[in-house]
Nucleic acid binder design. Structure first.
Lengths: 134, 134
DNA sequence: TACGCAGTGATATGTTATAACACTTCTGGG
DNA sequence: CCCAGAAGTGTTATAACATATCACTGCGTA
């Protein structure tokens, strides 16, 4: 069963539209960029509207927050729970999602730290942006 | 040679004081928290003062930025260049610095992405904060 | 002296995020 | 049907984080 099919998933108009906007963009979008789109659709024009929708989508695995950019992307594989890792192009803000074993397990066990979540974000240049600048 | 001994390291009063403040805190501090301390010392009271100092310290490996918290910590091992990884306590904001091989090399090579920097930040509970809440 | 550079001071503004409260809508139980 | 509680939304205000820009200073050096 995919996340989107779960009976307890309440995809209200605002949440659905935010998810669509993210899916259309193929890159990380800031909350206020999304809000501008939402406003154009008459679906809300104040920050809490978009932040609430984004929180919901992130909690339910349909979107991810990119800490490095203070921005959001649609999840590339909503069908399974996973610990995502990202490669972020610093030029075009495109985001490639990948999966990786959490690399801090050993250090955490050694120190008694209890890990709940791990953020892994690589920054660099995507293939398209490696062209020599004119 | 440690970073602090490098001849080209210009540790001006503002920069030195910011570093001291970070070293005293043992936890991540927001730029405006640091700025408040700086102001109390008569060393500057506008945001650019502290952001400039922090940029310098981060560039020169004496401090790190914690993306997850939009905050900063002193580097635990300024003696060598390294790709840091962090374990961040969500309760007390304490930060434990560790080192880890960048886990996305394989995926990056496979896709042609050129990684310049990798952020690894685990969030959870430090040993002290795992006590049962009263 | 004149110049350039790094650092600093100061003002203003841009960007991201949340607190707080009122109101509505949905849902299940009597 | 009616109610109560939970979930969602609308709205205002503000907190928190970050940068652009320009002026000025001190210092080393050509």
């Amino acid at each position: 069963m995919t996340h989107a099919e779960r009976a307890d998933l309440r995809l209200t108009p605002v949440r659905r539209r935010v998810l669509e906007i993210l899916l259309e963009s193929h890159a990380a979008m800031g909350a206020y960029d999304i809000l501008a789109r939402l406003k154009a659709d008459g679906l809300g024009d104040q920050p809490p509207v978009v932040y609430r929708a984004l929180s919901y989508l992130v909690e339910h695995g349909l979107a991810h927050r990119i800490e490095r950019l203070n921005a959001f992307v649609a999840c590339a594989r909503p069908e399974d729970a996973h610990d995502p890792a990202f490669m972020i192009c610093r030029t075009c803000r495109s985001v490639h999602e990948s999966t990786v074993a959490t690399p801090l397990d050993h250090a955490a066990r050694a120190s008694g730290f209890e890990i709940e979540r791990t953020v892994i974000e690589a920054e660099g240049l995507c293939p398209a942006c490696q062209e020599p600048a004119p």
